[in-house]
Design a protein around this nucleic acid. Structure first.
Lengths: 226, 226
DNA sequence: ACCGGCATGTTTACAGTGAAAACATACTAT
DNA sequence: ATAGTATGTTTTCACTGTAAACATGCCGGT
């Protein structure tokens, strides 16, 4: 689980130490994931990666234009993982509100379990994002899961009857902010009245509440109304 | 505006180039603000700062234990600026809801006008935060502005009758997330139905809506109800 | 079966960085 | 006046990203 064996044969399969690694690109990416998990993307060193993988210090440049290129590839993978995790939560037979809570929780748990990967996909460790259309595509399809959910909820009358983009921006801000404040340990530095799981679910409830359509004279639909 | 003259005499006052700079600490901080504004905190170089200020490359170490120490000082200043800006918005004669919208807008506008400073105070450019109690104090008092507002609003019956900390966590997440997504250019990369100012205010309205107590049978209190 | 080209690795080199250590200077308090 | 200390400088080390030139060996066409 911690050390995913690369599928293709590595250089240790044959007795003769082969000049060619055979799987360097994947090995570097895997080592990079470990490295940023432990020290963050800011401290990633291509030379250190090369050392770990057992290759000369400039070998990585045969597979990535530069350090930024490697980070972009990691970010792309991370966006795709987020897309998968959240869209797996969505069940059309459930209410949109329920789907939002489920997907939101999955998103937050992923972010918190992979703080450095989450930080990587936003923020400024990666530069010149506009030069990597694949990255934009992956990011876009992750956001689309949310956008679609908003459109559906608005159409069903569960959410406010507004542009789905507006609802999505709001939800995403709220969840993203919560993820980062958690990751950055800001909440942990204050005395919290709730345990973390309750805090997380309460936050999602409030996030939902911001965009939920409230039928008049139906107080039961309002959480926390007293 | 861009080049704040340091108040104490600089070395160019006397004809003789003085060995001692006289105001190096402040000059370094000022140069550092310019530097991170242009290139971000990740690319800050103490040596480059020293060059700009006209001093040897290790002179900064007489005033800051290391690069992290300088960043901590910048972060502390930034937290204090945020405290000032937001608490200036709060007028006890207004409703808590109104105060939240005002302070929230000021907070967001500051963050967006000073993206690199805002990024600095969160995130991982600064390491070993726990070793700097002053930083924690400044961060704490910035958060307290919000916390107090929540307590007041809850007491007045404007906000949900819950722990102020829970309300504050939610509001802060929402506003923080919006600030970062804006700064990181994520919103800008999508087609937005609203101009930025409207988008900002709409987001704050929804953020308020998440925690606002809604008196039953009073539909006018619900924004966006259709 | 050869062999030439190309993908993949290596060696070497350069310029930049944070930071420690030893040294120089000049302000300030006695 | 002078000693002590705060402030600056020089030198040095280990590290980084990455460019350039070179080596190796796999793979496909003859």
């Amino acid at each position: 689980m911690d050390l995913p064996m690369t599928s293709v044969a590595s250089n240790q399969n044959n007795a003769t130490t082969s000049y060619h690694h055979g799987n360097l690109r994947e090995a570097l990416l895997s080592a990079a994931v470990d490295s940023i998990r432990e020290q963050g993307a800011e401290n990633l060193s291509l030379r250190a990666l090369a050392r770990v993988v057992g290759v000369s210090q400039t070998a990585p440049y045969r597979h990535f234009a530069d350090k930024n290129g490697l980070l972009v590839e990691l970010a792309r993978q991370t966006f795709d993982e987020l897309s998968g995790i959240t869209s797996d939560c969505i069940d059309p037979s459930l209410s949109s509100a329920e789907n939002l809570l489920r997907a939101g929780e999955a998103y937050l748990r992923y972010a918190i379990a992979n703080p450095e990967k989450y930080r990587l996909i936003f923020g400024s460790s990666i530069t010149n994002r506009e030069q990597y259309p694949q990255l934009r595509t992956s990011a876009h399809s992750a956001f689309n899961v949310l956008l679609q959910l908003m459109a559906e909820g608005a159409q069903r009358g569960e959410f406010l009857n507004t542009e789905p983009m507006i609802l999505a921006n709001n939800c995403w801000s709220s969840i993203h902010g919560f993820a980062l404040l958690t990751i950055d340990g800001v909440f942990a530095r204050k005395e919290q009245p709730l345990g973390f799981d309750d805090m997380l679910r309460t936050h999602l409830q409030l996030t939902l509440r911001a965009i939920q359509y409230i039928p008049q004279n139906l107080p039961g639909a309002i959480p926390f109304s007293d």
